[in-house]
């Protein structure tokens, strides 16, 4: 493979690393979720590039087009994007509830596990 070919993959990998770093190192929950999205989006790029055929075109059957890119990665990534947004929604909903319960969404400020802060007041549902 040419260096140029590597270069593209490597940039994508750098994107992934930035995303992953954002998830792990950042304490703010919204930032973590944004980071998660960065990370996943970069993985999607990696996947999609697997299906690309140079000189090919979008896999929709048309007159006069001979070479198509592989549709399978596209399908997979469509599904994965949906999964990603579902995770984002649930994560954000949790963040809202944590903001209500703790008054902050900075994970670092919430300390760890063991200490006992008593049972949370029962919530009124409805």
């Amino acid at each position: 493979m040419t260096v140029l070919g590597f270069f593209n993959y490597w940039v994508v990998i750098i994107l992934m690393m930035i995303g992953l770093y954002c998830v792990i190192a950042r304490g703010n929950m919204i930032k973590k979720i944004i980071g998660l999205n960065l990370f996943q989006t970069s993985v999607f790029i990696l996947f999609i590039s697997a299906g690309k055929v140079v000189g090919g075109s979008t896999p929709i059957l048309r007159e006069g087009v001979e070479v198509y890119s592989n549709p399978l990665p596209h399908v997979l990534i469509l599904t994965a994007i949906v999964v990603g947004v579902a995770i984002t929604a649930v994560g954000l909903a949790l963040a809202v509830r944590i903001q209500e319960a703790y008054g902050t969404i900075e994970d670092d400020h919430l300390g760890d596990d063991g200490e006992d802060d008593g049972p949370f007041e029962e919530e009124q549902r409805g």
């Binding site: 929950m29 994560g91 949790l94 963040a95 919430l110």
Partner: peptide
């Protein structure tokens, strides 16, 4: 327990 939310997140 409110810690359930944190654990879940």
């Amino acid at each position: 327990d409110r810690r359930a939310l944190l654990a879940s997140f």
